[in-house]
Design a protein around this nucleic acid. Sequence first.
DNA 1: ATCTTATTTCAAGAGCTGTTGAAATGAAAG
DNA 2: CTTTCATTTCAACAGCTCTTGAAATAAGAT
Lengths: 105, 105
Amino acid sequence: MVSEDAAALFRVLSNSDRLDVIRALVEAGPDGMSAGDIGRKIGASPSRTSFHLNALSETGFLQKERQSRNLNYRINFKTIGALITFLMEDCCKGSSELRNCCTMR
Amino acid sequence: MVSEDAAALFRVLSNSDRLDVIRALVEAGPDGMSAGDIGRKIGASPSRTSFHLNALSETGFLQKERQSRNLNYRINFKTIGALITFLMEDCCKGSSELRNCCTMR
DNA sequence: ATCTTATTTCAAGAGCTGTTGAAATGAAAG
DNA sequence: CTTTCATTTCAACAGCTCTTGAAATAAGAT
C-alpha cells in the first residue's frame, strides 16, 4: 500500500467518535446497529453521527444496508486488517522487535 | 487506552511524509538517521522535515539524540506496537475474524 | 571571534475538518 | 395523502494542519 492511501485510512481512525463507533459495532457483532442507535450509544447528534458514519463507510471500515426505516451499519474487519498488515509488514518490514511490542495471543 | 489518546496517535500516522519517515528509519535500523538525511530521503525541506519529526517524536514514535552538529532520530517500536495492540485487543476485542484479516507470519 | 553547517522556530496564509441547526429525503403508518 | 420517524445533506463557521521562507539557535571548524 502506498503511504498516501495508508495515511488516508489512518486519518479516518484519528477521531474518537469514529473509534467509539467501531467499538460499538464490534460489540454489536454481525447484526450491526442502526444509525440512530449508534448515535445514542456514542452520545452524538444525528448529523454528527451521520458525518462520521459516512467517513467510516466511504473508506471501507463499515458496510451499510437499509432495513425499512433504518440504515443498518456493521463492521468490516478487512480494512482494519489491511491497516495492521500495512504497519507490521509494509511499513516496519515484519520487524520482530515490533512483533514483541504487540501483546497478543 | 482511551479513544482520545488512540485518535491522537492515529492522527500522527495520517500523513504520508510521516509514514515515509518511519519507513526510512525502520530501514536505517538501530543507528537511526540525522534530520538532514531524513529530509533528503523523503524529499522535504528542512522546516517541513522538522515539523514532521517533531510530531513523531513528541508522541513517542521516534527518539532523538544530538550527535555533535546533527540530531539523530531512530524508531521506537513501542508506540506502533501499542497502537496495533489497541486496534486488535481493545477496539476489536481480540476478534478472530480480524486476526484472519492480518496476513502475517 | 567569525564562519559554516545543521536544525529548529516563527509568522503568515491556504486549505481541510468537525460542529451546529435547519432543511431535505426516504420509508412506513394512520 | 398527510403525518411521523429515521437519516442525510447543506451552509456557515471556528479551529486545526501543513507549507513556505525567513530568522533564530546550536555546535563545530577556521
